[in-house]
């Protein structure tokens, strides 16, 4: 039986994450070699040299980043999506409810206190959820519109391939 040969090997994409990992592995291998072959002093020099390269690279990127004018990247967009004040408050209230339940289980909170506190927390959580829902509705719609607009610009062939 003739073996089936796949002429199209799977392509490994070099994402920044993979590049970093590759760089770290390479550095570990080279530094281990230098340490064993040339001794500790040479290893220190290698580390100093590597750190100097990193410093230059970071500084260069830092200076060029300010001058860039293109669209915001996905990473940057995710950065900007840090939790809002209400979102943080919501987390705090939910944590409070969880703690209260736990303390009740241990018998450290009387039933009366538990009822009062849980009622207060739940009312606040409800208000926060409603507020978040309202305030984020327009943003959510805007995001959906942008995604649709971007998808609309993509070549039809890719979409078909993906569907298949």
């Amino acid at each position: 039986m003739k073996p089936v040969v796949n002429s199209e090997l799977p392509q490994i994409q070099l994402t920044p994450e993979r590049l970093r990992l590759l760089f770290a592995l390479l550095l570990v291998a080279v530094s281990a070699f230098v340490l064993v072959e040339f001794g500790f002093a040479a290893w220190l020099l290698l580390m100093a040299f590597t750190l100097m390269l990193c410093a230059i690279g970071f500084l260069w990127s830092s200076v060029t980043t300010v001058g860039q004018a293109e669209d915001i990247t996905l990473d940057e967009a995710l950065d900007l999506a840090a939790p809002a004040r209400d979102e943080e408050r919501k987390l705090s209230v939910l944590r409070g409810i969880k703690d209260l339940e736990y303390e009740r289980g241990l018998g450290k909170v009387s039933e009366l206190d538990y009822e009062q506190l849980t009622q207060r927390y739940r009312t606040e959580a409800k208000g926060l959820l409603e507020r978040l829902d309202t305030s984020e509705a327009s943003l959510r719609q805007k995001a959906v519109d942008l995604v649709e607009e971007r998808l609309g610009k993509l070549p039809l062939a890719i979409e078909k391939d993906n569907l298949a």
Binding site: C54, F58, E76
Partner: peptide
Amino acid sequence: ASARLGAYA
């Protein structure tokens, strides 16, 4: 972003 990279440097 620039400050972040500067801090790393």
